[in-house]
Simulated assay, not measured.
Amino acid sequence: MKKFIVFDVGGTKVKHGLIGEDGRFLEKSAYPTEREDLDRFVADMVEAIRRYRDAHAVEGIAISLPGYINIDTGYSEKAGAVTALHKKNLKEILEERVHLPVEIENDGNCAAIAEKVSGNAQDCDDFICMTIGTGIGGGIYLNGDIYRGRRFMAGEYGMMITYLDGGTMRNMHETSGTASLVFQYRQLKNLQEPVEGEKIFAEAKTDPDVKALLDRWIGHIARGVYNLVVTLNPEKMLIGGGVSAQPYLIEEINRQLEGYEFWEDFKIPVVPCKYRNDAGMLGAFYHFQKMRRKRQAER
């Protein structure tokens, strides 16, 4: 069986794994993301690749990366929080170092691709995927294919302005990412130590102040969902990222949407992604397969 190395680069950690040609994961792990030093970022990735290749015959490397990615060349105009990769070409860097084919796609697009190929959007030609992590990402499917935009920047709805606070505009990255939720919770509880999102959801069941904070945070997400749905009129809205495993998140988004005046006219299913934290890696693998077929056909 052919095997492939997959990466999902996030602002906090780099998830990676070994996947078979049937799309099943054989191994999975993660390491902290080096966001600012290019040499260290590449060294960390090359070391992970080396460990897999020491034990397995590997056919290629598929990467899910934040930011504006030219899928044909691998060039990143911007790479989200991973500033080391701004205006860099990770595909060229890695192929020169490890001598394996590399394909790279935007992380939100990867999540959408995974859901379209084998997840909760297999029956849809037009749908939106929103991923909730440190910030907000996502992908848009129109007429059965990813819509990337003129400069590979479509789907960056984390940049949507969803809140005006005393004259200051705030986008969805600032209001709706899990980093925002954790920051607000730590302020409420006067905490210095890190906090996991699961703790906040659990505590909201018994603490009215935490529940109010959580519902306000979910309200920012619901506004973003509403704006996207009334703009694109898709068949389905999928919510991804690790936090989508919390049933209350999806329930509360839908509850709040019911309060919007015109939601009844535009209403569609708002459901969790099937793959959650694995969507980026799996979607990168599916993208790799498609790009390999494309490049072979062009020869």
Results as ranks from 00 to 15, higher is better:
residue 173 H to V: 07
residue 49 I to K: 05
residue 76 S to Y: 01
residue 194 P to V: 03
residue 17 G to Y: 01
residue 229 V to R: 00
residue 16 H to M: 05
residue 229 V to M: 01
residue 65 L to M: 15
residue 247 P to V: 07
residue 223 R to D: 11
residue 75 Y to V: 10
residue 224 G to V: 02
residue 205 K to G: 02
residue 95 E to L: 12
residue 227 N to A: 14
residue 54 D to W: 06
residue 12 T to F: 11
residue 293 R to M: 00
residue 127 F to K: 05
residue 50 R to F: 08
residue 166 G to S: 09
residue 65 L to F: 06
residue 264 E to K: 15
residue 224 G to N: 03
residue 203 E to M: 10
residue 58 V to S: 02
residue 57 A to F: 12
residue 18 L to V: 00
residue 171 N to T: 09
residue 59 E to S: 14
residue 104 I to S: 01
residue 172 M to V: 08
residue 114 A to S: 14
residue 146 I to M: 05
residue 191 L to I: 12
residue 262 F to N: 11
residue 86 H to F: 14
residue 25 F to H: 03
residue 39 D to S: 14
residue 288 F to P: 01
residue 201 F to C: 04
residue 292 R to T: 00
residue 81 A to N: 08
residue 122 Q to G: 11
residue 5 I to F: 06
residue 235 E to I: 02
residue 99 H to Q: 14
residue 196 E to S: 14
residue 102 V to E: 01
residue 278 D to Q: 15
residue 56 H to I: 00
residue 254 N to A: 06
residue 216 R to I: 09
residue 26 L to S: 05
residue 2 K to W: 02
residue 266 F to R: 02
residue 141 Y to D: 02
residue 294 K to R: 13
residue 103 E to I: 01
residue 194 P to T: 03
residue 123 D to C: 10
residue 42 V to I: 15
residue 224 G to C: 05
residue 3 K to F: 07
residue 169 M to R: 13
residue 82 V to M: 06
residue 17 G to Q: 02
residue 280 G to R: 09
residue 253 I to A: 10
residue 241 G to V: 08
residue 36 E to S: 12
residue 60 G to V: 00
residue 244 S to P: 05
residue 174 E to L: 10
residue 273 C to N: 14
residue 240 G to N: 09
residue 267 K to V: 02
residue 171 N to P: 07
residue 250 I to N: 04
residue 18 L to K: 00
residue 128 I to C: 03
residue 139 G to V: 08
residue 191 L to S: 10
residue 242 G to F: 06
residue 298 E to P: 00
residue 294 K to C: 00
residue 225 V to T: 10
residue 5 I to C: 04
residue 278 D to M: 13
residue 76 S to A: 15
residue 238 L to C: 12
residue 207 D to N: 11
residue 24 R to K: 15
residue 214 L to K: 04
residue 170 R to H: 11
residue 69 I to V: 15
residue 86 H to T: 11
residue 252 E to A: 08
residue 171 N to Y: 04
residue 8 D to H: 07
residue 290 K to L: 04
residue 250 I to L: 14
residue 253 I to S: 08
residue 119 G to F: 09
residue 86 H to K: 12
residue 190 N to R: 12
residue 232 L to G: 01
residue 185 Y to I: 08
residue 166 G to N: 12
residue 105 E to Q: 07
residue 224 G to P: 03
residue 41 F to R: 01
residue 60 G to Y: 01
residue 149 G to N: 05
residue 86 H to I: 07
residue 174 E to G: 04
residue 222 A to D: 02
residue 7 F to C: 09
residue 250 I to A: 04
residue 55 A to L: 05
residue 145 D to G: 10
residue 28 K to C: 08
residue 182 V to T: 10
residue 18 L to G: 01
residue 99 H to W: 12
residue 5 I to E: 03
residue 274 K to I: 14
residue 206 T to N: 07
residue 196 E to N: 13
residue 159 M to E: 12
residue 33 T to H: 09
residue 28 K to F: 04
residue 72 D to C: 04
residue 221 I to T: 09
residue 186 R to T: 09
residue 122 Q to E: 13
residue 152 F to I: 00
residue 65 L to A: 14
residue 22 D to H: 05
residue 107 D to Q: 11
residue 155 G to M: 05
residue 149 G to A: 07
residue 125 D to Y: 06
residue 232 L to I: 03
residue 5 I to N: 02
residue 98 V to N: 11
residue 269 P to S: 13
residue 268 I to N: 05
residue 81 A to L: 09
residue 120 N to P: 07
